[in-house]
Amino acid sequence: MPAPVRRSELVLLVYLAVVFAVASTVVVGSVVHIERTGLVVHGLGDGTVLTAAAVPDISLTVGDRTVLDRVEVLVDDTRIATHRDGDRLTLDNFAPAEGSHLFLARVRSLAPLVLAAEVEHQFTVTRFG
């Protein structure tokens, strides 16, 4: 005959079920936000080597145009000003020094606990093509 379930075991099971439900909701919400955002960087890929003349060609698009104004761009942890050009974002007066850099574009979610959609690329600027 099985032993009766103790109250402490029942409380623990309910607690674990709630934690699992909340964690699942956060993960699913994050994946939906990231996929729906569809953040794409044009003119720059991971490991790209480009000349300073090619830098103005970098732009960003998103699958959900309603989030375009919430895109944040950072290079080497410094925020880069952008402006909207139709359905794209372009970088304002961005002229990185020669050498290696880290480009990060992200769209923060408006929902709490949902991860930001991010695209990150290492790139190098050189004088010579």
Rank of each mutant, 00 (worst) to 15 (best):
P2S: 12
A3W: 08
R6S: 14
S8A: 13
S8M: 10
S8N: 10
L10G: 07
V14K: 10
V14F: 12
Y15L: 15
A17H: 10
V18P: 01
V18S: 11
V19A: 15
V19P: 00
F20A: 15
F20M: 15
A23N: 15
S24A: 13
T25C: 12
T25W: 15
T25A: 14
T25P: 04
V27G: 09
V28I: 07
G29Q: 05
G29K: 04
V31Y: 13
H33Y: 09
T37K: 03
G38T: 06
L39N: 04
V40P: 00
H42P: 02
G43C: 04
L44N: 06
G45S: 15
D46Q: 04
G47Q: 04
T48C: 06
V49Q: 10
L50D: 00
L50F: 07
A52G: 14
A54Y: 00
V55G: 03
V55Y: 00
P56S: 01
I58A: 02
S59Q: 02
T61D: 02
D64Q: 07
T66L: 07
T66D: 11
V67M: 05
R70S: 11
E72P: 04
E72T: 15
E72L: 14
L74I: 04
D77Y: 11
I80Q: 06
T82P: 04
H83E: 15
G86T: 08
G86D: 05
R88P: 00
R88E: 05
L89Q: 05
T90H: 08
L91Q: 01
F94N: 02
A95W: 08
E98A: 14
S100Y: 11
S100I: 07
H101G: 00
H101S: 08
L102F: 10
L102P: 09
F103I: 06
L104N: 01
L104Y: 02
A105V: 00
R106F: 09
R106Q: 13
R106K: 13
V107T: 01
V107W: 00
S109V: 03
L110P: 08
L113H: 12
V114K: 02
E118Y: 01
E120N: 05
E120H: 05
H121Y: 07
Q122M: 13
F123H: 01
F123E: 02
T124I: 06
T124W: 04
V125C: 01
V125D: 00
T126C: 06
T126H: 08
T126N: 08
T126P: 01
F128G: 08
F128Y: 10
F128N: 11
G129N: 11
G129W: 10
G129E: 13
G129Y: 15
G129A: 13
